[in-house]
Computed example of a mutant assay.
Amino acid sequence: MTTSPSVAVITGASSGIGAVYAERFAARGYDLLLVARREDRLRELAAKLESLHGINVQTLTADLAKESGMQAVEEALRSNERISVLVNNAGVAHLAPFTAGSAELHQADIALNITALTRLSLAALTRFQAQNSGTIINIASVVSLHAIAGSAVYSGTKGYVLNFTRGLQQEIEGSNVRIQAVLPAVTATEIWEVSGVSMDHLAPESIMTTENMVDAALAGLDQGEAVTVPPLHDLALWEAYETARLAIFDASRTGVPAPRYQQ
């Protein structure tokens, strides 16, 4: 009896990081379900990957900032038992002073970066836990760790992604389900076209290619990393950050105001 390949679902797959994830999982022998708003690009990528890797690629045109788009992908995740990987890559950035954006713009960013990612994770993880297998990759950002002027909403959404992922990792500990947070820094993608910041204004040496970013992230996944920061060379910095973060959390559980706050 021939066993059908597992399926990897990749959101925001029509270009950039998502398209590279699609190529890499195709090269690993996965069939694909590619999700994005731009149907023409999805179909072009699907045809290319089917030809190169001899896999089956399905496409789902969906706007994950909208209820109908979220529901369509949720249904696919719940109904296809062959799905074993979800890459929550779809996201958007508008980098400008908070008050320069409308409530509608901020709400759309939150819907895509937070709400869709949360709901798709729920749809996937419910089944992954039931079968005790599966992988979720959540694309966060180094601005999960540090916000700068103009990034309040974007940094806030990515901070959610990191902490949301950490919480899920605690819940699935000891199982065969894997959940990884990936924290890219500046990466050469089309997100800059809508962000309000031109890549021409960025230091060239700070920009990582999408291929290098995804390859590093997948290497981190294969090595069992819970959080992967592709451009961070000095691992001791991360270890010190983690140690300090946990120490602050533990030291805050005294139930007594610190002396500096007492008269």
Rank of each mutant, 00 (worst) to 15 (best):
N80G: 08
H106W: 15
T99Y: 11
Q71A: 09
V73E: 00
E74D: 07
S84M: 11
E44R: 11
L95H: 04
D63V: 03
R82A: 15
E67M: 03
N113Q: 09
L105A: 13
L60G: 00
G101Y: 14
A76D: 03
V87N: 00
A62L: 06
S51R: 13
E104V: 11
A100E: 13
R43K: 14
Q58Y: 06
Q71C: 05
S84R: 12
H94W: 11
L52P: 03
H94M: 13
A65N: 07
A111G: 12
N113S: 10
I114H: 00
L49H: 05
G54V: 10
N80Q: 14
A108K: 11
V87E: 00
A65W: 03
G101R: 15
E104F: 03
G91I: 04
E75N: 14
I114K: 02
A100N: 15
V87H: 00
D63A: 09
E67C: 02
E50M: 15
V85R: 02
L52Q: 15
I114W: 01
P97E: 09
G101S: 15
A76G: 05
E104Q: 15
E50A: 14
N89S: 08
L64G: 01
D109A: 04
G101A: 14
A93Y: 06
H106C: 09
K48D: 14
L112V: 02
K66I: 03
A47D: 15
I114E: 02
L60F: 00
A62P: 07
S84N: 14
A72Q: 12
S102C: 07
I83H: 03
G54P: 10
L49S: 08
V92G: 00
G69L: 10
K48G: 07
S51I: 06
P97C: 12
E50F: 12
G101N: 14
A65I: 03
A111L: 09
K66M: 11
T115C: 05
V87L: 01
R82P: 10
Q107L: 11
E104W: 08
T115W: 02
I110E: 04
T99H: 14
